[in-house]
Design a protein around this nucleic acid. Structure first.
Lengths: 362, 362
DNA sequence: TTCTAGATTTGGATCAATCCAAAAACATCT
DNA sequence: AGATGTTTTTGGATTGATCCAAATCTAGAA
């Protein structure tokens, strides 16, 4: 009669139990409950337990929106990719998700479809939602000023896979140049001298780095032959480009592809021409997606570890959010060459016995 | 001196221009600015223009968090899938993204990895963020009570691809039973009589519906032969199961697979056994992922349109959010059979007389 | 000119948390 | 017991928008 500890049913009606309600029920103040929720060490153990019991009893649900309004962060990260339908991004997003989840963060995901306009809209929307930071895989044609704009917004941004402008900025990716270099090394070891490259025609860093790796590697091995074809980085483009390529004279004996999709297309194209991938022409892809292990023949590929890139990018973003003024970081993972069957096996290639069609002119 | 219209630089420092600031600058009240932002027809045109000018001039950024606190919705949707790395989900998420984007919504994406515990954590987190609704692809083993729990939370939830419990509930998917039925019909048309099925061993609706479609179709055609193998729905499982299957006597002449990944595995397995997919054994997949068109041989597949499912699911969720009490809806898209080469071509199977040179098949 | 219906506009309360300075409770040492 | 120092706890102010009832401003009619 003096104090009703639990108004039986009137509480869970409207679904909104507030800090105030808990405080009343536990006989403490709003502020104390807030401290308990945030796991502050200021609260005495006995009080903490009382409050936690009340929280459980009343079925309280933390309101992150209200907290964000007064506080300084939303525990929310914006993620903008340009092709979520691509399996590579699926894996990357899974990595991001895992890393964020550990810290209680949630991510807004948006798909720019490589359109700078869509990308811009998404970024503005995320800003309105007061995300703590952004993971951005910049759409092709993103203006160089975008990074400054984000800085003006004081929105921490980690660029992923591609970057616009020059460092310093936060960046997480794979060392694409090195990956292609490794692929060339491997082919040279196997005895190849005429190594072609099927690349993307787009102008972003991820494409350029691969070209660079390719030409550096050729120079390093004193190879005169060079053949660089550009197209979409799709299976279909791989199929079409390889046909053109195989009609060249002299014909390359190996081809490195921008990604695995192109490589699959190239292998299919070879088959359609009556040529055997790995025998008549070695093929190397990039990314090492799951299908690479099970294609026919199994594809040798430069593994770029999308899941790990996602994890690293997310962790870097969290670091930057915690320390916005800190030194910018570039996390560039080393790829590794996953050797399978699409380059033939060593015995075939390294011991060409007689017909060493010694490299001629390009 | 009486009124300073624009304090030149002191405003954009802290980055937070509020409704109050705009109101002062435009000479109106907070409330009016709010009405303008929400495109209320109550505001006179002249006032609206004045306010919009002030908004632009001061570089105001709408604070959706603050709005959500007082208002009733967050323009936010939670999306929980169980395998984001799967290309099917990539496409589906792209569809969701497109539909939400049109209405100004943003989505939180989470990956349950088919773990009910992870799923539960994510749902709680999303509740704390006060999402307006949930798109849920239930993890395997999700307790039947989950849907009630979400209802208790008064959180609108659309189940996608799989469902737990029985209608009425909101649900968006493909008619898997019908898809398998169509596949059987096609094979029977081609003259097949021994048709096997490679399915998943999991106990969710999506798997059961396919079994059901398979046995109904067999009954419909009075086929006595039946062979149903269960495993993971992965490429590797397809590869392993087909080998077992082809050692059976009598051997099936055709196999329908739970999804395309299994079908790719099955085709690879056939090749490894020295059998030709489409000649020695017809293969049909489900989903019609992009790779299906370019595999070797090109895969006949039951197209389930993940992008469209994503769009429909998102739109249904938005409808339910707008009208929480409305009648529950089941949006079940009709799949269609995408015929390619993995069942042989018509000339071999149906009309051995004339070599119809028409591109793929009729 | 006054009245009134209709169209605009407004201030105060509210949403549910956090921040912060100051108060209260408790322990320790003369 | 009193002075001092440490933990704990607290109320009031604050965050930035929306809701709502009431106030103000039209324009047309009496």
């Amino acid at each position: 009669m003096t104090q009703d500890t639990v108004p039986p049913s009137s509480r869970r009606d409207s679904g909104s139990v507030t800090l105030q309600d808990i405080a009343a029920h536990a006989g403490v103040s709003r502020s104390t409950v807030s401290l308990v929720l945030r796991e502050s060490p200021l609260v005495a153990d006995r009080t903490r337990l009382k409050v936690q019991a009340a929280i459980k009893e009343l079925g309280y649900v933390y309101n992150r929106g209200a907290a964000a309004l007064r506080g300084s962060h939303t525990a929310t990260l914006g993620v903008v990719v340009y092709d979520i339908a691509n399996p590579f991004f699926g894996a990357m997003v899974a990595g991001i998700d895992a890393a964020l989840n550990r810290e209680g963060y949630v991510s807004f995901l948006a798909n720019s479809e490589d359109s700078p306009e869509r990308q811009q809209r998404f970024l503005e929307r995320m800003r309105e939602h007061r995300v703590d930071g952004i993971l951005l895989c910049p759409a092709e044609g993103t203006p160089a000023s975008l990074i400054e704009t984000l800085a003006d917004w004081s929105l921490p941004c980690v660029q992923v896979l591609r970057h616009i402008g020059e460092p310093p900025f936060d960046y997480a990716s794979s060392d694409f140049a090195r990956g292609v270099h490794q692929a060339v090394d491997h082919l040279v070891d196997l005895g190849h001298r005429r190594i072609a490259f099927l690349g993307g025609h787009a102008q972003h860093s991820a494409t350029q780095e691969r070209w660079q790796g390719y030409s550096e590697a050729l120079a390093h091995h004193d190879l005169a032959y060079q053949s660089l074809m550009r197209g979409q980085v799709t299976r279909r483009a791989g199929l079409e480009l390889i046909e053109t390529l195989m009609r060249e004279t002299p014909r390359p004996t190996a081809v490195i592809c921008h990604n695995d999709l192109m490589a699959f297309g190239a292998m299919l194209g070879l088959k359609r021409m009556g040529l055997a991938p790995g025998v008549d022409c070695a093929v190397i892809g990039t990314d090492d997606v799951e299908e690479a292990a099970l294609s026919d023949p199994a594809l040798t590929s430069v593994a770029t570890h999308p899941y790990a890139i996602g994890e690293e990018a997310a962790r870097l973003a969290l670091r930057r959010i915690a320390d916005p003024g800190g030194a910018r970081e570039q996390v560039v993972l080393a790829p590794h060459l996953q050797v399978r069957e699409s380059c033939g096996n060593a015995s075939q290639a390294t011991a060409p016995a007689s017909p060493t069609t010694s490299d001629s002119i390009a």
